[in-house]
């Protein structure tokens, strides 16, 4: 049961959920939640391949960098969301029609 296939299926489900969240939601923060799901799915794939295919540590390093980038991305994106909310008083993605802040 704990084979490579089950981990790949779990990460696929996470990825699909992330895609649906990005496309279906209209709230910017909900879209960010979907992004986090996708990043997690990719990190899980790296670690799963590390265990089952080659036992080198590079997959873990990749996962760590994915986590670092996800944290940085969350911080900057939420800062942008807050700024956007200060200007437009909305977090609707369709209201983001201007590049000028």
């Amino acid at each position: 049961m704990m084979g490579l296939a089950s981990y790949l299926i779990i990460s696929t489900i996470l990825f699909i959920c992330g895609v649906i969240a990005i496309l279906a939601r209209k709230n910017i923060i909900a879209i960010l939640l979907g992004l986090e799901l996708i990043l997690n799915a990719s990190a899980l794939n790296f670690v799963a391949y590390t265990r089952f295919l080659n036992n080198s540590i590079d997959g873990h390093i990749f996962s760590l960098f994915i986590i670092v980038i996800a944290a940085a991305e969350a911080a900057v994106a939420l800062a942008i969301v807050l700024r956007f909310y200060q200007i437009r008083e909305t977090v609707h993605i369709d209201d983001a029609t201007q590049l000028q802040g």
Partner: peptide, 10 residues
């Protein structure tokens, strides 16, 4: 899941 994959630090 990471723990079951032996990736304790991750």
């Amino acid at each position: 899941l990471y723990l079951t994959l032996g990736a304790d630090f991750v």
